[in-house]
Design a protein around this nucleic acid. Structure first.
Length: 472
RNA sequence: GUCCCCAUCGUCUAGCCAGGUCCAGGACACCGGCCUUUCACGCCGGCGACACGGGUUCAAAUCCCGUUGGGGACGCCA
C-alpha cells in the first residue's frame, strides 16, 4: 500500500481525430470530455492525428482541427502526434504477432469478402469474415493483408466507466485486418499500439466504439499490454434522433464561430450534452474542470439543441466585457462592409447592445447605425414615422438639441416629454420619429442613450436629414 | 438480420446507485401577463414527462424480468 510518493497511475487521456473532415460537434465533445477529465485529475491530455487513411486524410483538415481546438481553448500537453510517422513501430508489432502465431496472412480478395458478407446477411447472420485463410499458413503476397487471429470461444468483458459492465462473446467477433494491402496498419492496430506507447490510462470516446472495444482488448492482450480504462459517452444526435451528420445543418465547430457564437457558449452547450452537475446551467471553464467526472455522465444519447446554444450565447454575450466583444467584432463588421469606424463609439454603444443580441452577427447588425456616417434608412420605417405629420415634432427636437446638447440625457428626456405634452402626443409619438431619424430603424436602445453615444454633431445631422425627408 | 447500448416534459436534464421527503425539480422553446419611448433585457404565471406490462415491497421514476421503441456496430474508415 502506498503513500504520497508512489506513482499512482497518472491520468493521461487523448483525443484522436482523423483528419478526414472538419472537427464536428461530436468530436469536439469527446475532446472536451477527455480534456476535462485530464485537467480535473491534474493529468495530461494528448492530441493525436489518426491519418492512416492515406486517401482521405488532408492537411487542410489537420489545420482546421487544430484551429477549432484552439478556438475552444482545449490545449494539449503533448502532440499533435501523427500515425503516419509511426509506420515502423506498427510493422514491428505486426511482425511480432505474425511470429507468435497471433496473426496470419490472408489472401482473400475484397470481392470475395463482399460476396461472403452478403451471403451471410441473406441467411440472417452477422456479416463476419469466415476465417478462410486462418489456418492456411500463408505468406505475404501482393494484395494480401494481415489479420489478427482471435479466440473463437469464451467471452471478453470490460467495465465501462459510464455504462458499467459489458460482455461480448468472442465468437461474435471475426478476425480483423490489422495490416492493409497498401502496407498501412488499420485503425484497430494503430490505436491500440499508440495508446499503449503513449501511456494512455483512460480511453474516453463515443458510444459508436463500444463494439470495437472487445476486439481492441484482445489486441492489448496479444501485445501483452496493460489495459486502459474505457468510458463510452453517448452519441450526439440530430433533431430526428439519428447520428448527427451534415444533413442536419451546421455540424462543424467552426461553423458556429462564423455564425457569431462565443467559444464559452459552445463549450457549455457541449458539456451539458450528456453531463450535468445538479441543476446548474452555466459553468465557467474552471467550474467545468472542478466538477467534471465520469460518474455524472449520462448513458443515453442526446439531441443537439441549437435553441439552447443560442440562449447560452446570449447570456455569455451579456456577461462579456465590452472590450473583448469589440476585439471579436471586426470580422463580423467587415462582413457588413464596415471597416473604418470609431472604436470609442463602438465601446460606448456596446453596453446598450449586449442585452439585445444573441450572436456576434446580431451584435454587428445592432451596432451598424452608430458606426457608419449615414445609416441606411428602412423604407417602411420612413414611411411610417417620417412624414409631413412629423415635421413639427422633429423641428422641436432639433431646437431642443440645439439648446441643450446631447450630453445631459435627463434634461433631454424632460424636454422631449414637454414636447410630447405640448403636442398632445404620447412619448412614443416623439420617440419613434427620432429613433428612425437617428438609426434608420424602428428599434434601438433608448433614444437618449443613442444620442449620448452619437454626440451632438451626428445627432443634429441625422435629425436634419430626417427633417428633409419628412418635409418632402 | 446478428450483436451491443439506451429509455423522465417537444429538447437538454435533476432525481435512480444507498426505494418513502416526487400527484416528479430546473433550463431551452412555446403561450399569457407585468415593465416600457421602440426592440430587447428583466420579472411573474401557464402548458408539459417517469414508454408499456409484469413482478419484489407496507411503499417503485427509483430494484428485477419481459415487451415495445430508439440508437449504434457489423469496412483493406476512424
Amino acid at each position: 500500500m502506498d503513500k504520497v510518493t508512489d506513482n499512482t497511475p497518472r491520468v493521461r487521456t487523448r483525443f484522436p481525430p482523423s483528419p478526414t473532415g472538419a472537427l464536428h460537434l461530436g468530436g469536439a465533445r469527446t475532446a472536451l470530455f477527455n480534456w476535462l477529465f485530464a485537467r480535473h485529475h491534474g493529468g495530461e491530455f494528448v492530441l493525436r492525428l489518426e491519418d492512416t487513411d492515406r486517401k482521405r486524410s488532408k492537411d487542410e483538415h489537420v489545420e482546421g482541427i487544430l484551429a477549432a481546438m484552439d478556438w475552444l481553448g482545449l490545449d494539449y500537453d503533448e502532440g499533435p502526434f501523427y500515425q503516419t510517422k509511426r509506420l515502423e513501430r506498427y510493422r514491428e508489432a505486426i511482425d511480432q504477432l505474425l511470429e507468435q502465431g497471433r496473426a496470419y496472412w490472408c489472401h482473400c480478395s475484397p470481392e470475395d469478402l463482399t460476396k461472403k458478407r452478403e451471403a451471410a446477411m441473406a441467411v440472417g447472420g452477422k456479416p463476419m469474415y469466415d476465417g478462410a485463410c486462418r489456418d492456411k499458413n500463408l505468406g505475404p503476397a501482393p494484395g494480401a493483408v494481415v489479420r489478427y487471429k482471435g479466440p473463437r470461444t469464451g467471452s471478453t468483458s470490460f467495465n465501462d466507466l459510464v455504462k458499467g459492465p459489458i460482455t461480448f462473446e468472442n465468437k461474435e467477433m471475426d478476425d480483423l485486418i490489422i495490416l492493409r494491402s497498401d502496407g498501412w496498419p488499420t485503425y484497430h492496430l494503430a490505436v491500440v499500439l499508440d495508446d499503449i506507447d503513449m501511456g494512455i490510462t483512460h480511453v474516453i470516446r463515443g458510444d459508436d466504439h463500444v463494439n470495437n472495444t472487445p476486439r481492441q482488448i484482445l489486441l492489448y492482450q496479444a501485445l501483452d499490454a496493460e489495459l486502459p480504462q474505457f468510458a463510452h459517452v453517448p452519441m450526439i444526435l440530430g433533431p430526428d434522433k439519428t447520428k448527427l451528420s451534415k444533413r442536419h445543418g451546421a455540424t462543424a465547430v467552426m461553423d458556429y464561430q462564423e455564425m457569431g457564437y462565443l467559444p464559452e457558449a459552445m463549450l457549455n452547450a457541449l458539456a451539458r450534452l450528456g453531463w450535468s452537475h445538479g441543476d446548474q446551467e452555466m459553468f465557467s471553464r474552471q467550474e467545468l474542470i472542478d466538477y467534471f467526472g465520469l460518474k455524472t455522465v449520462g448513458r443515453s444519447a442526446a439531441v443537439f439543441d441549437t435553441d439552447r446554444l443560442l440562449h447560452l450565447n446570449q447570456r455569455y454575450i451579456q456577461e462579456s466585457d465590452p472590450t473583448r466583444l469589440a476585439e471579436l467584432l471586426p470580422p463580423f463588421l467587415a462582413a457588413r462592409g464596415i471597416a473604418d469606424y470609431d472604436q470609442a463609439v463602438l465601446l460606448a454603444c456596446l453596453p446598450e447592445l449586449t442585452p439585445r443580441a444573441k450572436t456576434l452577427v446580431e451584435l454587428a447588425d445592432w451596432a451598424e447605425p452608430y458606426l457608419v456616417d449615414e445609416p441606411e434608412m428602412d423604407p417602411k420605417a420612413v414611411k411610417k414615422f417620417l412624414g409631413q405629420e412629423q415635421v413639427t415634432v422633429l423641428e422641436r427636437v432639433v431646437a431642443l438639441v440645439e439648446a441643450k446638447g446631447t450630453g445631459d440625457s435627463e434634461a433631454l428626456e424632460q424636454g422631449v416629454r414637454e414636447i410630447a405634452e405640448q403636442m398632445d402626443l404620447k412619448l412614443g409619438g416623439v420617440a419613434q420619429p427620432v429613433r428612425v431619424a437617428l438609426t434608420g430603424r424602428t428599434f434601438s436602445p433608448g433614444i437618449f442613450e443613442v444620442m449620448g453615444f452619437l454626440g451632438d454633431e451626428r445627432v443634429k445631422a441625422r435629425l436634419n436629414r430626417a427633417l428633409a425627408i419628412a418635409a418632402k
